[in-house]
Design a protein around this nucleic acid. Structure first.
Length: 272
DNA sequence: CGTGGGACCTGCTGGC
DNA sequence: TGCCAGCAGGTCCCAC
């Protein structure tokens, strides 16, 4: 479900309610996420104060006092909501982080592709985070970086954008949208795209993600922020989910093809 | 090494 | 109306 803008929307919604609060209790109703939640994780985290929440790629990092971090990934269908601790849990509410304030962060994830890890020391060294590429909205993600990385590569431009070692946070929706904005065909070989076009692509990635964060993310079926509100960026999607519809820029018809099992949308008229 | 495909899991949709 | 195949916002891991 969530790409970078949805994770960032969640982070921003939750942080003011969580920062400085103490974790009173962690309730695990179902530990069977992508990796089983460690049995002693609740005991390790309980009674620690939350210093703040950071985001790295699509991971939420709950920084705790005494140099510890809870690392949470929302997978495909995960969401995090602020609830009253006594609210009865609905289906798939696998996990509650109960705060001393009486509120709880409730993690719900039907497909169970998400994960929760305990980490001491520098979370950047954690095995899930250690080999991640730069943040797309940071200055480290720039035209020369992506251009250099792509030399000699045969993979599709879209696959490169979605490779977390190249750049993080870009999933299927925003990869499609950014390539459309940059007028690059998703299936074009990364190695035969010139520097100027990478400059345009980098700019497109940054603008799409920034606008999506501004809009509170994209709600296709069920994404909501931490208070249950949907995001509004789906209204501004130009190609994703629009197969057979008219391109807004030219007379072309948006086409859908599968690229590495993922639905890929592009305009054959203006992407080359 | 780079690349593509399968795997994990549940729920919803659309076609018959 | 009911059933079932196919598809879904992620990403790790394993062959080639």
């Amino acid at each position: 479900m969530p790409e970078l803008p949805e994770v960032e929307t969640t982070r921003r919604g939750i942080e003011p309610h969580v920062r400085g609060r103490r974790i009173a209790k962690i309730i695990i109703r179902d530990a069977r996420l992508r990796w089983p939640i460690a049995e002693n994780l609740p005991r390790q985290a309980e009674d620690r104060r939350i210093i703040g929440i950071q985001r790295r790629a699509k991971y939420l990092l709950f920084r705790l006092e005494a140099d510890a971090t809870l690392i949470l990934h929302l997978g495909m269908s995960g969401s995090l909501r602020l609830v009253a601790a006594q609210d009865p849990p609905l289906a798939h509410a696998h996990l509650d982080i109960i705060l001393a304030s009486g509120q709880a962060l409730r993690y719900t994830d039907p497909r169970r592709f998400g994960s929760l890890h305990w980490c001491t020391g520098d979370p950047a060294q954690h095995h899930l985070l250690a080999s991640l590429g730069p943040e797309p909205l940071s200055s480290a993600f720039h035209a020369d970086y992506l251009y250099g990385l792509s030399r000699g590569r045969r993979i599709c431009a879209k696959a490169l954008l979605m490779d977390s070692r190249a750049v993080v946070g870009i999933g299927n929706i925003y990869a499609n949208e950014a390539l459309y904005r940059a007028a690059i065909r998703p299936m074009r070989s990364a190695g035969c795209i010139g520097r100027n076009r990478y400059a345009r692509l980098v700019q497109a990635v940054k603008s799409v993600l920034a606008e999506a964060i501004e809009a509170g993310g994209t709600t296709l079926r069920d994404f909501t922020d931490s208070t249950g509100q949907p995001g509004y960026f789906h209204r501004r999607l130009e190609v994703y989910g629009r197969g057979g519809a008219a391109c807004q820029r030219c007379a072309g018809i948006i086409r859908m093809e599968r690229l590495g099992q993922r639905a890929t949308y592009y305009c054959p008229g203006c992407q080359f």
